[in-house]
């Protein structure tokens, strides 16, 4: 076998494309996390509602997203949704909708897990003091639950950043898609995809180190 001549220079020459892709990845992830948290709150409220109908909808929503692959959601939103709604979404919008609806299901479970981990006695104590259910939730339960939710919340958010790479299948110019372009321009898939892996690794590793520090601070507090 001939010795392979590595040449990262050829790939790095296209750094503006990579930078553009990194921005795309950050944009999809940030929007999906934002909408996902809002949606997750709604879904969690339904899941824990006292009304059977709402509870069933919440449960079905969560189970659907937990049991189907992300790539199906991306394709469905991009290709199938326009058929029913007559609204054609661009790749970015489709990716954000797919990722945000999916992460709503996962964030809802994080919220529910946190809230239900608080012992019943806390509710009873608050009620005994004359607090309403809403007040007890806001002033007693959530502050305690929030601390426990940080770790799973961070983990979920990392999944979103990783899953955002699926937007490449809709030809949205995030990191992976840009990398694919560079690989076909330069004929250097080994360097390109290795570099891409490194960029994702660095991004997620830095984020997870920051999250660790945050978690430790919260545990001490």
């Amino acid at each position: 076998m001939q010795q392979y001549e590595w040449d990262f220079g050829a790939v790095l020459a296209y750094w503006p494309m990579l930078l553009h892709g990194l921005w795309g990845t950050v944009a999809i992830s940030a929007l999906a996390i934002l909408f996902g948290i809002v949606g997750g709150g709604l879904v969690a409220a339904m899941r824990m509602s006292r009304h059977v109908a709402l509870r069933t909808i919440g449960t079905a929503y969560i189970e659907f997203y937990r049991n189907t692959p992300g790539i199906v959601h991306f394709f469905w939103v991009y290709y199938a949704l326009p058929v029913i709604t007559n609204v054609k979404l661009g790749p970015l919008e489709a990716a954000v909708v797919a990722l945000a609806t999916q992460s709503s299901a996962f964030y809802a479970e994080v919220l529910r897990g946190g809230i239900q981990s608080i012992v019943r006695g806390q509710w009873e104590g608050a009620t005994a003091l004359g607090m309403s259910r809403a007040d007890a939730l806001r002033r007693i339960i959530v502050p305690q639950a929030a601390r426990r939710m940080v770790a799973p919340f961070v983990e979920r958010s990392f999944e979103i950043v990783k899953t955002s790479s699926l937007a490449s299948t809709l030809a949205y110019g995030e990191l992976l898609y840009q990398g694919m372009q560079i690989a076909s321009i330069t004929y250097r898939p080994l360097e390109t995809y290795s570099l891409l892996a490194l960029i994702y690794f660095a991004l997620l590793y830095v984020l997870s180190s920051l999250a660790k520090i945050l978690e430790d601070r919260l545990q001490e507090a």
């Binding site: 392979y4 990783k162 790479s165 898939p189 080994l190 995809y193 892996a197 994702y200 690794f201 997620l204």
Partner: peptide, 25 residues
């Protein structure tokens, strides 16, 4: 562990299909 957990699975698959063969010939 850190390498495989911090890189999206899709990148891993693409790497093994398009990049790894160059490495092993």
């Amino acid at each position: 562990v850190e390498l495989f957990r911090n890189i999206p699975a899709l990148i891993q698959l693409i790497w093994f299909f398009y990049a790894f063969p160059i490495l092993i010939g």
